[in-house]
């Protein structure tokens, strides 16, 4: 860990910023869980709760932006402090988008209520949710711990998310071809799958920020030079 600042209030502000990001990350994780649960159980109450949580998440993003801008103006941050502040703006923006995705999942539950849904339709969505949840959790852990290796692993695993999404797309397409009555619910689920796949992309973005925060280098540039799997920091 870096040493303390000579001006202790500066250290306090950086800690507060990191804690706010961690709190926001936690709320976003809960929102995805609730949003998906609302979808799978067709639970209106949980759907409303997720929509409400998204408002709070939006507010936290604005709070993080304001903290970051204020610190840049007053502290003239340098090196890893500067990176911590700039990446916090990006990560908060990614988390805010994930919050929106969770809200979309929750709202979708209201639309598919009463449609002809077979229990088997949900399996793929459940599996994809579990995978993107673990991706997001690992990305946030890598960010909080400033762990570049863990960040690379998260980025590498994004291919699994994409593969699972493609497979789910084909599966839902098959249900639609089997029976035209499946088209409406399966189309809704396709949108949900796309939202989940996008959450995976945001998790990758956060992991890339974690890598930059720790190393000062952009992951994509390093990957071109070294092959992602060979990087050891």
């Amino acid at each position: 860990m870096p040493s303390d600042h000579i001006v202790s209030s500066y250290s306090d502000e950086l800690i507060q910023l990191a804690e706010t990001i961690a709190r926001m990350g936690g709320q976003v994780e809960v929102a995805i869980e609730d949003g998906t649960a609302a979808l799978l159980k067709l639970d209106r109450e949980l759907a409303d709760k997720t929509v409400e949580a998204d408002r709070r998440i939006d507010g936290m993003q604005r709070q993080i932006d304001e903290m970051a801008v204020s610190m840049i103006a007053r502290r003239q941050p340098m090196a890893s402090d500067l990176r911590a502040i700039v990446t916090s703006i990006h990560v908060a923006s990614d988390l805010e988008r994930v919050g929106d995705m969770a809200k979309q999942l929750a709202r979708r539950s209201l639309k598919i209520e009463g449609l002809n849904l077979q229990p088997g339709f949900y399996n793929g969505v459940k599996n994809l949710t579990a995978l993107v949840m673990s991706q997001l959790k690992d990305a946030l852990d890598a960010y909080a711990a400033r762990n570049a290796e863990e960040a690379i692993e998260v980025c590498n695993r994004d291919d699994e998310v994409d593969a699972m999404y493609t497979s789910l797309f084909r599966e839902l397409l098959t249900y639609m071809m089997e029976d035209p009555r499946n088209i409406t619910p399966c189309t809704h689920l396709l949108f949900c799958a796309k939202s989940l796949e996008r959450i995976g992309d945001h998790a990758t973005n956060i992991a890339e920020r974690a890598y930059y925060l720790q190393t000062g280098k952009q992951l994509s540039e390093d990957v071109e030079e070294l092959q992602r799997t060979q990087i050891r920091v």
Partner: peptide
């Protein structure tokens, strides 16, 4: 030097940290 210095002493100095 100001975004990604290599040495810890440089980092501590430019970031205003106690070295």
């Amino acid at each position: 030097i100001f975004t990604n210095p290599v040495h810890k002493q440089t980092q501590d100095y430019i970031m205003g940290r106690i070295g």
